[in-house]
Design a protein around this nucleic acid. Structure first.
Lengths: 162, 162
DNA sequence: TAGAACATCGCGATATATCGTTATCTTCAT
DNA sequence: ATGAAGATAACGATATATCGCGATGTTCTA
């Protein structure tokens, strides 16, 4: 029951995925282009926002997916003169989208975070460290180094026995 | 006078620059290509290493510089079939390099850090936070959040009155 | 010689593409 | 049902290019 590890269905928790499911990128593209035409980078940002910063698919995920889908005829890309390649749903793509279960959650929702995410606080900490690095005196930087070193040790301890 | 602020020639310290001098990128390229032909990304990595991670010029610095220098005839770029554009010194470039004062320090040396850099420890801290985020339980993540929040406050305090 | 005006450079953000590794999912034999 | 094998997708790293903002350095003027 509870003798066995505090994992349960916990292991790595009730929070969002690490890595997207197979096909999640393509499904996300289908849904986004169902709303309006977009280019690749735009989709990356959109997914980043919709997942609250927890799924920002890398170029290595997005651009091959777009090419794949284009090859399969579900989307069509038009090269603009500004170096942007804007994609639109084809009829086949629209059909595929219509066939999708409308109650199924969008892929980015699988990445929704509860409040326990370390991301924002880590981000703030980095920003503050940067401030000290840029504008602090040698003494202040030394102090900062100490603080950060201690924090690191504390994090180790949490994983070791916390 | 000198009564003002514990800055002296301290302000932001005896450590490396924030931003490269005007012309530093071009000078660095000249020096690197004096050693061997390289492509853009390779130079970025090389400068990152030679400056101990303190100057990793962004694509927005490097690629325009390469094009500029090519336009001025000091370097020549050859497009490979693998998407890499390898640059070489031209005779004019070699001449320019020979005319350079050999005792002058290389641009990346201006970024040399004393031991007070926060960069490595910040990096380690991020790595450890990631570990907790990936593999930690909800309790452990909560603890980590607390630790990081405290560290942030401590850093604020250092800049405020430390 | 000060300072203002101008030209140019450095850089983060924006934008795209591919490669090799790793993870995921399906399928097929056991 | 189970588990190994194969196919394919996701992703970080590698690679290039441009834009606009802000910093830097030079030149011109008073």
């Amino acid at each position: 029951m509870k003798g066995d590890h505090p994992h349960g269905r916990g292991g790595h928790g009730s929070r969002g995925r690490e890595r997207a499911r197979r096909g999640a990128a393509a499904e996300a593209v289908l849904l986004l282009l169902g709303e309006r035409p977009m280019h690749g980078y735009e989709m990356i940002e959109e997914l980043d926002q919709r997942s609250d910063g927890n799924w920002r698919p890398s170029p290595g995920s997005v651009y091959p997916t777009l090419r794949r889908m284009e090859g399969r005829g579900v989307i069509a890309g038009a090269e603009g003169d500004d170096g942007k390649r804007v994609y639109t749903l084809t009829d086949a793509g629209r059909e595929r989208l219509d066939q999708r279960d409308p109650d199924a959650p969008a892929p980015w929702e699988a990445f929704a975070e509860d409040g326990a995410s370390l991301r924002p606080i880590v981000h703030e900490l980095i920003a503050q460290a940067k401030q000290v690095g840029r504008f602090g005196t040698a003494q202040q930087r030394e102090k900062a180094k100490e603080i950060l070193t201690n924090a690191k040790s504390d994090l180790y301890a949490v994983m070791a026995d916390g």
